[in-house]
Design a protein around this nucleic acid. Structure first.
Length: 426
RNA sequence: GGAAGGGUGGCUGAGUGGUUGAAAGCACCGGUCUUGAAAACCGGCGUAGGUUAAUAGCCUACCCAGGGUUCAAAUCCCUGCCCUUCCGCCA
């Protein structure tokens, strides 16, 4: 949610900022709703004030033993006027809230112009894609030949976009999780948390998945209106919903969580249908930070570095891009995507997305801290990033470390987590 | 699933339908005292919105959430959510 005061005071600048991401702010609607709101609110509050003082007088008169009947008569009309004014005010405020909750965050000034992912700008590259002296297989074929990846059985059990992993591949998958959790905890200073995988609508609203993106979610057929998490960002960021951190609280707060993620992938029919790139269920190690406003820009840089560190440990070539205005997510002010080299596709594919939301999520969440300067409550800034998506990391390891005989070498960083195994083969 | 009791400020915790935005304590901030600190003492200290040049005043809302009764609701009624205790069930 954008700051309503900012919108009120700088409507045209806000509209201009949002235009960068291709969002057309309904300036006329906002102007007229705001005018209405102001008028009705003033009227309502005046009536409330009137009622309060008259009620107090009635109380006093009664205590003094006077006849209150004439006073009650006076107040009769006021009561009706107030009721209708309050109803009117509710309606305008609901309309305003409803619209504002669908308005995305304003992209940071350094976010490049552009309409789609084609306009994202590369900021750095690490590693050199390996030259293969044999025909490269993709992870689906590699997985099948060593009996480690089975999409057909998964589709029998459930349906399309699910996977069964077995033996060495399942172990490799688990080793990746362990490596990431340990690295972020021991080397990058994150606290590991374990959180619910089922969340309520308020939590999804807080991080911005609702109300606009319900079709991307799996909703439980349950009268409580629960959803499966699409990312750990939702439960972990909601740790601080409706919270005012005490003055002594240490900032930043940094959390790392390993969770499954569930996405309905509505609207992506026909995209990445082969293999593990796009699944309804996948696992991810997620990094989440709560920081002071003045620290959030720097925090995005270090957080992105934390995600990159995993790829470096694994020796996987990658590049980092900054998303252009047209490609950036609803709640984000600035996002870096990290893309790993996928040999079978001969290109870099997204494996992590690291974003600063500034105060956009915090305003929806009411996640605040006490500013030591002023002693007043202030909104925190939130950030998160995948550190990393496990399924995509797995396929990157498989493809980049494949051998001519179809076996897969285990990167050194993972060997301790695999009882020292150096190779996965049939 | 059954029974009972609860949800009040950053935290703990009082609260009679009527100058209660709410006692008290803790924490925090300022001061006195002290070489300094602690202790003690004195004072201050909720959040959000509106209006405004204003972080000044004034007004409004907020005691889990949403409805209702009333001239007036933290206080009475209804619904929901959550918590605690006991019983049952259970990984």
């Amino acid at each position: 949610m954008l700051d309503p005061k900012l919108i009120r005071a700088n409507l045209d600048e806000v509209a201009q900022g949002l235009a960068k991401r291709g969002f057309e702010l309904n300036v006329n609607l906002l102007r007229s709703l705001e005018r209405e709101r102001k008028e009705i609110q003033v009227k309502t509050e005046n009536l409330q004030s009137e009622r309060n003082s008259r009620s107090k007088n009635i109380g006093k008169a009664k205590a003094a033993g006077e006849d209150i009947a004439p006073l009650l008569k006076e107040v009769d009309q006021l009561k009706q006027d107030l009721a209708s004014a309050e109803t009117e005010l509710h309606e305008v405020q609901n309309k305003l809230d409803e619209y504002l909750s669908t308005v995305p965050n304003i992209p940071a000034t350094e976010v490049p112009e552009g309409a789609s992912e084609d306009d994202n700008v590369e900021v750095r590259r690490w590693g050199t894609p390996r030259q293969f002296d044999f025909e490269v297989k993709d992870h689906v074929d590699l997985g099948a030949s060593i009996d480690g990846l089975d999409f057909d059985t998964a589709s029998k059990i459930t349906g399309a976009r699910f996977a069964v992993m077995r033996g060495g591949i399942a172990k490799l998958h688990r080793a990746l999780i362990q490596l990431m959790l340990d690295t972020h905890e021991n080397e990058h200073g994150y606290e590991e948390v374990n959180v619910p995988y089922i969340v309520n609508a308020e939590s999804l609203y807080g991080t911005g998945q609702l109300p606009k993106f319900e079709e991307d979610l799996f909703k439980l057929n349950d009268e409580r209106g629960f959803y499966l998490i699409p990312t750990a960002e939702v439960p972990v960021t909601n740790l601080l919903r409706d919270t005012l951190l005490d003055k002594g609280a240490e900032l930043p707060l940094k959390f790392v969580a390993h969770t499954p993620c569930f996405r309905s992938e509505a609207g992506s029919h026909g995209r990445d249908t082969r293999g593990m790139i796009r699944q309804h269920q996948f696992e991810k190690v997620e990094l989440v930070q709560f920081v002071r406003p003045e620290d959030s820009d720097a925090a995005l840089e270090t957080l992105t570095g934390h995600a990159e560190a995993i790829l470096q440990k694994l020796g996987l070539p990658y590049r980092t891009v900054i998303l252009c205005g047209g490609d950036i997510g609803f709640s984000a002010a600035k996002t870096y995507d990290i893309e790993v080299w996928v040999p079978s596709q001969d290109k870099y594919r997204e494996i992590s997305s690291c974003s600063s939301f500034r105060d956009f999520q915090a305003r929806r969440l009411k996640a605040r801290y006490r500013d030591p300067e002023t002693g007043k409550p202030a909104l925190l800034h939130t950030l998160n990033g995948s550190g990393l998506a496990i399924g995509r990391t797995l396929l990157a390891v498989m493809e980049n470390y494949q051998q001519a005989d179809g076996s897969i070498l285990v990167p050194e960083a993972l060997q301790p987590y695999m009882a020292g195994a150096t190779r996965i083969q049939a």
